[in-house]
Amino acid sequence: MGLLKAVWRHPSGRIGAAIIFIFLVLAGLGVVGLTPHDPLKQFVVDRLKPPSATYWFGTDLLGRDNFSRLMLGISESFIVAFASVAVAASAGAVIGLFAAWWGHLWDGVLMRTMDVLLAFPAILLALLIVAIEGAGMVTSIVAIGIVYTPIFARVVRAPALALKAREFVEAARTFGSSQGYILTRHLLLNLVAPLTVQITLALAWALLTESGLSFLGLGTQPPAPSLGVMLAESKSMMTRAPWLMIFPGLTIMLAILGFNLLGDALRDILDPRTQGRAA
């Protein structure tokens, strides 16, 4: 695959891809239960132990293994992030594409609806949805998915409008090509690149929002560990057991960093105009 090779040659792309790969492995092991300890089991005698050979990242107030909980937390956060971005990207892409293609009234109606959603700060819209549906993993997915749908709609609509005016689409019209053919072959195919970049960057935001919701107690519910929940729990013990804060904090940061780096690299590779421009 040319793209994978290009990512690997890109300095920040390589770091980002490596980070995400490690996290995916950890998350995978977490899901199938291959953790050093049972993440939910309470080793009562080993409460608040600092990092050691047995408990790599220490233990929490209830004597649960911090590292095992992190692995499970990563998988929880990643599932929410991937699922919500899948929702947002597909819904947003369809809305943006049709708004651009049909134009006129449809464009107005669809994009003003997106504006209404955008009028709510992301966390707040998610809060509203959580308030209605009650906290939980599915609610988080739906909430984050809805929050990012308008962003994808905008990301797709602008280049779709530009493509629609391009001469190869006009040429297609002179041949009498069908709408379906033009939409898929001429528009969607050329939107793969910006969508790939946006999906990668959206995964970073989704992780951020998911952990934020969990931190507020409105995402994944305890005792299931999620990165946000673990950080929230660490707050009251930060001076006694700083490792409970440091490791989840670093984990979230690294995961978001990984997607941001990869997204930037993809943008450099896929958009020749910004070659070497990503900050």
Binding site: A232, M245, M253, L257, N260, A279
Partner: peptide, 18 residues
């Protein structure tokens, strides 16, 4: 800038308080 954009505010806040 990259690190700043990748660090959630609650991590920054907790670190500052710590």
């Amino acid at each position: 800038a990259m690190l700043g954009q990748s660090t959630p505010s609650f991590v920054v806040g907790l670190v500052l308080i710590y």
